Amino acid sequence: MSIPAKLTTLMLSAPAPVAARRVVLSACALLALTAGCSRVPQLEDRLPADLRQQPYPRLLPLDTALAQQPLPEEESAELSDTLDARAARLRRRAEELRRRQP
């Protein structure tokens, strides 16, 4: 066990008055509440006035938001195959049109 882990274990297992623990927990809770309620003007002033009046975006389920997307390599290979097939069809059509003209 490392030294910081030993100290942490020692501090947590050491008998402390209940009142002292309550004071520490109350101070931590108060600090967390005041930090959460503070106003950060640097962030609030960045929003334009028209966006401040807009509702929050709709939340998506995590499964939908993190849906599996095809890999870019696979997607580009499919696109390349589609374009090659289209080009071959257009060449055949152009050849047929050349044969029809006298």
Rank of each mutant, 00 (worst) to 15 (best):
S2F: 02
S2H: 04
S2L: 05
P4S: 04
P4D: 01
A5C: 04
A5D: 09
A5E: 11
A5I: 13
K6A: 11
K6F: 07
L7V: 09
L7I: 10
L10Q: 07
L10F: 09
L10W: 04
L10P: 00
M11C: 08
S13K: 10
S13C: 05
P15R: 10
P17G: 15
A19G: 03
A19H: 02
A20D: 11
R21L: 11
R22F: 06
V23K: 12
V23A: 14
V23Y: 04
V24L: 15
L25R: 09
C28K: 10
C28S: 12
A29P: 00
L30T: 13
A32K: 05
A32D: 04
L33E: 07
L33D: 03
T34A: 15
T34W: 13
T34M: 10
A35S: 14
A35C: 15
G36M: 08
G36W: 01
G36Q: 03
G36D: 03
G36L: 09
C37W: 09
S38Y: 05
S38P: 00
S38C: 11
S38K: 09
R39N: 10
R39K: 14
V40F: 06
Q42Y: 07
R46C: 04
R46P: 00
R46T: 07
L47N: 06
L47M: 08
P48N: 05
A49M: 11
A49F: 07
A49R: 12
D50Q: 15
D50Y: 12
L51P: 00
R52N: 10
R52T: 13
R52W: 03
R52G: 07
Q53M: 09
Q53S: 15
P55M: 02
P57Y: 01
P57L: 02
P57W: 01
R58T: 15
L59F: 10
L59V: 11
L60S: 13
L60R: 11
P61V: 04
L62T: 14
L62P: 02
D63F: 05
D63W: 01
D63Q: 11
T64V: 14
A65V: 05
A65P: 00
L66M: 12
L66A: 11
A67M: 07
A67L: 11
Q68L: 10
Q69F: 03
Q69R: 14
P70F: 01
P70Q: 07
L71G: 14
E73A: 14
E73W: 03
E74F: 08
E74T: 12
E74K: 08
E74C: 05
A77V: 03
L79A: 14
L79F: 05
S80R: 10
S80F: 06
S80Q: 13
D81C: 08
T82C: 07
T82Y: 04
L83C: 04
D84I: 06
A85D: 06
A85T: 06
A87I: 01
R89P: 00
R89Y: 01
R89M: 05
L90T: 00
R92H: 02
R92Y: 00
R92D: 02
A94R: 01
E96S: 03
L97T: 03
L97C: 02
L97V: 04
R100T: 06
P102R: 12
